[in-house]
């Protein structure tokens, strides 16, 4: 029995690629467009108003907090002096360092 052979001239091409025209723009343009729309949405003068209302208050709030920290700092130093008898410097630095451990009074306060 003779073997089956391909037809003369070979088989026809198999259509495996999709042959659809690409619709719309390149994907990158959609990405850019999305960011433009987002940037427009984020732009808001109300945000400026809110930010400045806080900026005007920041020094006031910071000053109050600093005073409280300094008060606690001096209280801590006084306690250390009483317990240790000397002015022991814990850090080799002149900077103001917020304490890692908070002093808890023995009795209920406030």
């Amino acid at each position: 029995m003779p073997q089956d052979m391909p037809p003369t001239g070979g088989y026809a091409q198999v259509q495996y690629k999709r042959n659809i025209p690409a619709r719309g723009f390149k994907p990158a343009y959609y990405m850019i467009g999305m960011h433009v729309i987002m940037a427009y949405g984020f732009y808001n003068e109300l945000a400026r108003e809110k930010m400045w209302s806080r900026l005007h208050l920041t020094p006031l709030l910071q000053a109050e907090e600093d005073r409280d920290q300094v008060r606690r700092h001096y209280a801590d130093k006084a306690r250390e002096k009483e317990l240790l008898g000397t002015d022991a410097k814990v850090y080799n630095s002149d900077r103001f360092i917020r304490p890692t451990f908070a002093y808890t009074p023995a009795n209920l306060t406030q």
Partner: peptide, 26 residues
């Protein structure tokens, strides 16, 4: 360094030592 205040929610424990006298009051 502790960047946050100590908050005690079980009992009220706040260091109430007043500011030393050499610092003017406000």
């Amino acid at each position: 360094m502790a960047q946050r205040d100590a908050r005690f929610n079980q009992t009220v424990l706040v260091d109430t030592t007043p500011m030393p006298d050499h610092i003017p009051k406000v």
